[in-house]
Design a protein around this nucleic acid. Structure first.
Lengths: 216, 216
DNA sequence: ATCGTAATCAACCAAATGGTTGACAAATAG
DNA sequence: CTATTTGTCAACCATTTGGTTGATTACGAT
């Protein structure tokens, strides 16, 4: 498998359809590197080194650094989608239940893999100057926008939520809150209990506000 | 003022106490550069170029890039403090008023200078690998922690807030919410009205929750 | 006028970094 | 078995980048 004057051969990887394992491995490494060193510290050669391959070999898979970043962006996009899809499990029950489930999903993800949100934040900043990255952030925002809107409408129909709800306004606020939770929880590593408490409090607040009879 | 074979002399700057205007100007430029290109794109020479000086001259003021970053960090620290101090204006009234004022302050800052929060986010990420930066972030967190705690305690004493409030828990949640507002509002530029709406909604939620008689 | 200091520059340097080349081996297809 | 494709490397290259050197000028103090 290896050619050239290679001294320490990399472990074997088999192709599978459109994406070889190697490609995947590289992406994973780049992702990890962004977590620990930030976009600021992502180095083409460093990724190669950690993958145990020559930088030329890395270039074989990703011709330029841009391409590599694009790959990582896609990877994150996939994960984002996966988390979103897996997010809304089997039983919705009523709108309130659904809302709770959403917060619960956030809590779980936040405790299990906080680094995910680090990368998201990193990308959110980058999005300001890289349209390709921006688009995935926007897609994500729209996803949550739609999902929250759906839940809120449902809740109003069901009569669980207050009738005078300004939906777009509430959506905006809820998104901001969720982002804040993510940020505040993921930036420093916090004990799971603290995260849970934080999420619960915000969820309670939102819930109370959504279900209180109109006050303005 | 200029020496060497300089072709396009930089405008004159006079010293004032411990910090020359030049120094300040450089810091300002570096700050702006971080806003537009991120930490990722901060370049020693680029800063010099924008200041209209030679990179060696820049090195005269900030011997290393690290020193420059340190300077920017301090600058942000100052601004942070300024915003905090100016934040709690003359009349507190009661705890509820104070809380509202806090959100109002956030709203104002968010509309007037969103880039401020960009840099904060940028620094928050960097803090994960740079202790010097981390410390200012921590100081800021502690500041808000104290401030919020004070307000909440006061509100409970005054009987405006519910009696069963878990203060540390509420503080955590409020901080997360404020961060979320900042993030969601500053990352993309949004119309002032939207920002105002968002802040108001979150503030309302928090207020409602804080003032409702105990529910658990 | 002179001396020292503050401020500035052109030119240079070394390291890092993204990327390329050309060869070569291993697997795969014919 | 041969030809082709796929994966890999050592060595190289050009540019960028942080940083240094030594000279030069302006200015305030003596």
């Amino acid at each position: 498998m290896n050619g050239g004057g290679n001294t320490e051969p990399a472990q074997g990887f088999v192709r599978n359809g459109r994406e070889t394992s190697r490609r995947r491995q590289i992406l994973e490494i780049a992702y990890g590197q962004i977590v620990t060193r930030g976009f600021e510290g992502l180095r083409f050669r460093e990724v190669a080194a950690e993958a145990g391959i020559n930088n030329a070999t890395l270039a074989y898979y990703f011709p330029t650094k841009e391409a590599l970043i694009e790959g990582v962006t896609e990877l994150l996009g996939e994960r984002l989608q996966a988390s979103q899809v897996r997010g809304d499990e089997p039983a919705p029950g009523n709108a309130l239940e659904e809302m709770r489930q959403m917060f619960e999903g956030l809590r779980r993800r936040l405790t299990q893999d906080p680094s995910f949100f680090i990368v998201i934040t990193e990308l959110a900043l980058r999005a300001r100057r890289d349209p390709a990255v921006e688009s995935i952030g926007e897609r994500r925002d729209r996803f949550w926008e739609r999902r929250l809107t759906r839940i809120l409408m449902r809740g109003m129909e069901e009569g669980v939520f207050r009738a005078d709800l300004e939906v777009p306004c509430a959506v905006l606020a809820l998104m901001a809150q969720m982002k804040g939770l993510a940020q505040h929880a993921a930036m420093r590593d916090r004990p799971a209990a603290e995260i849970a408490m934080m999420v619960k409090t915000v969820a309670d607040q939102a819930e109370g506000w959504l279900t209180t009879a109109g006050s303005g």
